[in-house]
């Protein structure tokens, strides 16, 4: 049994008066890929953003309940959300490298903002992060190129490298391949599997076949509720809940 990396307890979330997550309880396993699936508006992206306190950035948004990470409730008053977001990084739907920065600086920015100035340290982290993101070989000869000069798939891997540079333990990915072509998607999917050897990955995806391909566990959300959560094999072969079955087989969505 894989130990839980994150334990979600009675999590509720609102945008103003509209409740978008209802009493979610879930254990996210360590060093595994957990996919969050469900129709548009089911709360899956909100759930992901609650896992590193990004939901509260939106004006009018609020959260109740606990997200316990390494034994600490990240919503405790004493917890610094910036520190949490370093440990629980986020990769977004659309690749978003900083447009005015080089490839090198896009990766090094997190460390620089944290006061790291030593060139050797920065060089080593940039190289290691780009290698981990399977991008090093493609960019190593011109790290001073602008990050946005890369292809969409390369930009997304650059964003993954940027997230890895600050040594997170968890990577949250919000539809990281939806803006990419099939080849770039395949590379990101292979990368996600590789990353799961050392990191805990939670991915929101609209592409249920992608969830089936890359995840170890799958959670199905519907109208703000967690309907079913289990191993990906069980969910895709033999879902216990009729709503899950209907969503997966395309009877609604």
């Amino acid at each position: 049994m894989i130990a839980p990396k994150i334990k979600v307890e009675n999590l509720n979330a609102w945008f103003g008066t509209k409740q978008v997550l209802k009493n979610i309880n879930m254990e996210i396993k360590e060093k595994a890929v957990t996919a969050i699936i469900g129709p548009s508006g089911c709360g899956k992206t909100t759930f992901l953003r609650c896992l590193n306190r990004m939901h509260e950035i939106t004006p009018g948004a609020r959260v109740s309940g606990k997200v316990i990470f390494n034994g600490i409730n990240i919503y405790d008053k004493s917890v610094d959300p910036v520190m949490i977001r370093k440990k629980i990084g986020m990769v977004f739907q659309k690749p978003n490298p900083f447009p005015m920065m080089s490839i090198y600086d896009n990766v090094a920015i997190g460390l620089k903002l944290n006061g790291v100035r030593d060139k050797k340290t920065l060089d080593a982290v940039v190289r290691r992060s780009l290698e981990l993101a399977n991008l090093w070989d493609e960019v190593k000869d011109d790290l001073n190129r602008s990050g946005v000069s890369l292809s969409g798939g390369q930009q997304q891997r650059l964003c993954i490298a940027r997230a890895l540079a600050v040594e997170p333990e968890v990577l949250l990915m919000d539809e990281p391949c939806s803006a990419l072509d099939p080849i770039a998607t395949a590379k990101i999917e292979a990368l996600i599997r590789k990353l799961a050897e050392n990191y805990t990955v939670v991915i929101v995806t609209h592409n249920i076949q992608q969830a089936a391909r890359i995840s170890d566990y799958t959670a199905f959300f519907y109208l703000g509720e967690l309907i079913e959560y289990g191993s990906t094999k069980q969910i895709f072969e033999n879902p216990k809940h009729e709503l899950t079955r209907k969503y997966l087989t395309g009877e609604f969505g």
């Binding site: 249920i208 076949q209 895709f236 072969e237 033999n238 879902p239 997966l248 087989t249």
Partner: peptide, 9 residues
């Protein structure tokens, strides 16, 4: 069609 769930079974 990459069938799943009851379709796959």
């Amino acid at each position: 069609f990459q069938p799943v769930a009851s379709d796959l079974r």
